[in-house]
Write a protein that binds this DNA or RNA. Sequence first.
DNA 1: CGCGTTCTTCGAACCGGTTCGACATCTCTG
DNA 2: CAGAGATGTCGAACCGGTTCGAAGAACGCG
Lengths: 341, 341
Amino acid sequence: MNIGEIAKRAGVSRSTVSYALSGKRSVSEETRRRIQQVIDELGYRPNASARALANGRTSTIGLVFPPAGNHYTGMQLDFIGSVVEAAAAYDYDVLLSPSGVDSDRSFQRLLGERRVDGAILMEIRLQDDRVDHLGEENFPAVCIGRTARSDRDWWVGLDHTALAAACVNHLADLGHRRIALVNRPEHLLRAGYESAHRGLDGFTKAAAERGLTVRTYCCGDDAPSGQECLERILHEDPDTTALVTLNEAALGGLYRGLAVAGRHVPRDFSLTGVVAGRWAETVTPQLTAADVPAEELGRLAVELLVERLDHPDAVPRHHLLAPPISLRASTGPAPAPAVNR
Amino acid sequence: MNIGEIAKRAGVSRSTVSYALSGKRSVSEETRRRIQQVIDELGYRPNASARALANGRTSTIGLVFPPAGNHYTGMQLDFIGSVVEAAAAYDYDVLLSPSGVDSDRSFQRLLGERRVDGAILMEIRLQDDRVDHLGEENFPAVCIGRTARSDRDWWVGLDHTALAAACVNHLADLGHRRIALVNRPEHLLRAGYESAHRGLDGFTKAAAERGLTVRTYCCGDDAPSGQECLERILHEDPDTTALVTLNEAALGGLYRGLAVAGRHVPRDFSLTGVVAGRWAETVTPQLTAADVPAEELGRLAVELLVERLDHPDAVPRHHLLAPPISLRASTGPAPAPAVNR
DNA sequence: CGCGTTCTTCGAACCGGTTCGACATCTCTG
DNA sequence: CAGAGATGTCGAACCGGTTCGAAGAACGCG
């Protein structure tokens, strides 16, 4: 059931069938009807590979997501979902590519073999060879996150610096003086992940401006690490009264650590951070947080990519979002300093 | 930079280059080296569309996942991740297809246009027209979950009946007499989702056998719904001392509802259910649960699909898993009946 | 030396679409 | 009524690979 078969049964040439379907040249009403009827009868659909080969477009975009094997966070899930959904609206499919263990290989596969028309990259690093590489080749890509030199890239991202600072200020306003930062895992920070870096930056600067005493921690992307991290925080400075987390996956563990230590939230201890709204609502008390608009970021990334695909010479565009802090129930006034500690 | 260009620069014909790469016919060592050198110099990679067109295989599998737009659960995330990873090991890419709003359209796109060699389906219904349809066409597909008539399908799944029953028995052994079931959302149950149905089934039967008093609830896939559901449970039968949840996304809300109601877990109230291990560990106290081995299910699904693709006439195979309950901290002996309620 | 094998390599056909140029008809206009 | 222009259709070439049959070269053997 290929286009030749349709043509034969409709008594026309292959090209006529093609034009009838694409509408790129006029076809008489009579002929079009006959062709359509045959197509409907046979349930014909044009072969995607052949079409991609002929016109050089696959109608597929690649979603390059973080190393497989380790844990995914809820935020990443939200990105994937919203990207797929937004892409469908533009008639694009989404091909997943773990840029994991063998990063180069799957990258080569996607781009070198032209499986996709463009790509969306997640978990960007400040110095990101993937981005540099794509930039050199002028391959249509959009980053969720931005590199250090981001003027020439297309990206959507969060203003992690401002977000972390907002969290610090929120806590400072409530009277907290000794606070901690719970960052993403150390290997990610060391690898230069932008959210971890800029978040740390914003946190540190804002804390300095407000004259706060701070400690910063890296923490694995799971609940047990979160609990462990919290124990370390309280052990190293028992007078800590609040924390900011950039690590969503550790959230449950942080809460557990506080419960185990007998610190009531928010009476004895306040938490805030940068977390997607849906996940901030799963903990008790609900987390006061800068809600990561994962859904919007995914959608914007697709929109930018589609625009770039339609206009190959367009100048780089980007969106920097800085959602406000949603007040929920996990922060409160700093407790009066304990006399006996 | 196509195969013709390589051939020209290496001074051979296109077919020789093809054979040198595929190894399907012998090529002299001398020639092979010359070709390889040119390829390395130019960084040539064969075009995936052309290759797919020529040999009729795309080396891509489709992952048909639940309606977009609504919430994804952590379990679904784990599936996606493990499927992608396992597929990569067999040199397959994964194309995501939301079987959402316009289910037929994206289905047609994937299968009718031959974008994928095979498909993995998630969130199966007992009567699933997608599965029936694929079965009729003998299209290589593997379900994560099983339909009512599953003899002729390929699938991997959980024994939800047994799992729910195990949860009930665990609670009954601890002395609980009045328990509730928190199921997936009502529209999913009504649509015939197999996990919701079989889970409900196993729960009801086991409870009857043990002579327990039960109530069953449907609950939205998010924390606020979970909280609301718990309020309803305690309102409609304040003597309820335990619950089983099939709804992972509601978990945080259930815990919050209990906290708000002043019921201590596990002293006053026990929780258990069917939840992926990683997520069972995010709540405090950690959830005693039948751990959904999402990672293993995803991997097995890919293995079955690959086998089916390699042997088109193989007889249907499947894996039914029934992981044991992992004892954590959310269940305990039933509280002594309150005299005054 | 002649002949059958084996080893290499090539050209052509094919996969299933799209698109270009050409041609035949039909229609309008001066 | 001739010529220009628009309309509808077709055949051929092309996208970039794979694969088949055949042909030339090298080799072994009687």
